[in-house]
């Protein structure tokens, strides 16, 4: 980064440290914090969508749809997510390629599965073999988002289902009595009211999602943990900046990062909760009303 860093072996002390901390690899490390934040920002709404679909499916009148929804929740929640991550991403990747293969190469005669090998026609490769590395990285990131969303969607579905059941039954019955259809009642009455009941569960889920991001490196995304390990490991003179095992310092840094994220989230969520509670017929809403009255 700086011209003076051209030959690190001549440097010492603070100069060395300044060059070390601004090496290309460290810049990648700093960028990976952005990766984690983007993952959180993208995954949260996608997971919520999965959760919504799951909860609505579980509530469905159709037996099969309901079983699907409940099965999704029970299966994914019963399995440790780390186990899920270890084989699911490869399965998902192969599933996508299998589908594109069916569409693009219907005349392909060779078997797709040959022993352990999975081979689709070159046109069906996702992303195409010649695509630049950035496309591959983006695709890998996309797979990670979908995988995270499926796991957390199952938990979100559970929270949302509970919240939907918590909305007083009489509200929906009234809506039906006014001539609304089942769908209208769900959309106009049930969904707007359920958020306040869902919030505690969803906040909890958000905090868990933050702490699950170190597993990103299992999904092949170079995240903060990957870089902390890579940078912290002891370096021989094959590297420009040889140093002993410094992983402890890097991981302490990560610890601070996660604690900060948790603290900030807690503060923001407390605000949202206060705002949503205003004027609600719940205990918190009641407490606010009383506090307002005595003041």
């Amino acid at each position: 980064m700086f011209a003076s860093c051209a030959d690190p072996s001549l440097l010492s002390g603070l100069d060395w440290l300044a060059c070390y901390l601004t090496s290309g690899k460290h810049l990648d490390f700093y960028r990976s914090f952005g990766t984690v934040l983007i993952l959180l920002a993208v995954t949260a709404p996608v997971a919520l969508a999965f959760g919504f679909a799951g909860a609505l499916a579980a509530r469905s009148q159709l037996g099969l749809v309901s079983i699907l929804g409940r099965g999704y929740m029970a299966m994914v929640r019963g399995v440790p997510d780390i186990v899920f991550f270890l084989f699911f991403v490869i399965a998902l990747d192969q599933g996508i390629e299998w589908l594109t293969h069916q569409v693009r190469c219907p005349d392909w005669t060779e078997p797709i599965r040959n022993g352990l090998e999975f081979r689709v026609c070159p046109q069906a490769k996702v992303p195409p073999g010649a695509a630049p590395q950035s496309v591959h990285s983006l695709y890998g990131f996309g797979l990670a988002v979908v995988t995270f969303a499926i796991v957390f969607g199952a938990f979100a579905a559970n929270v949302l289902l509970g919240a939907m059941n918590a909305v007083p039954r009489a509200q929906i019955e009234t809506a039906l009595a006014y001539g609304m259809s089942e769908r209208q009642a769900t959309r106009r009455v049930l969904i707007p009211q359920m958020w306040i009941y869902a919030l505690p569960g969803l906040s909890n889920l958000w905090l868990i999602l933050i702490k699950a991001t170190p597993l990103l490196f299992l999904l092949g995304v170079r995240d903060v943990v990957y870089w902390a390990r890579e940078l912290g490991g002891s370096k021989t003179s094959a590297y420009e900046y040889p140093h002993p095992d410094w992983r402890l310092y890097y991981f302490l840094g990560l610890l601070v990062f996660y604690l900060l994220m948790t603290r900030i989230s807690e503060l923001v969520l407390a605000r949202i909760s206060a705002r949503l509670s205003r004027g609600q017929a719940t205990m918190a809403g009641e407490a606010m009303r009383k506090a307002g009255a005595t003041a």
Partner: peptide, 18 residues
């Protein structure tokens, strides 16, 4: 409570081992 709930178990294992 904040320390243990606010950090990933992953990192807790690593730091404890170290």
């Amino acid at each position: 409570i904040f320390l243990f709930r606010g950090s990933p178990l992953f990192i807790q294992f690593f730091l404890a081992y170290e």
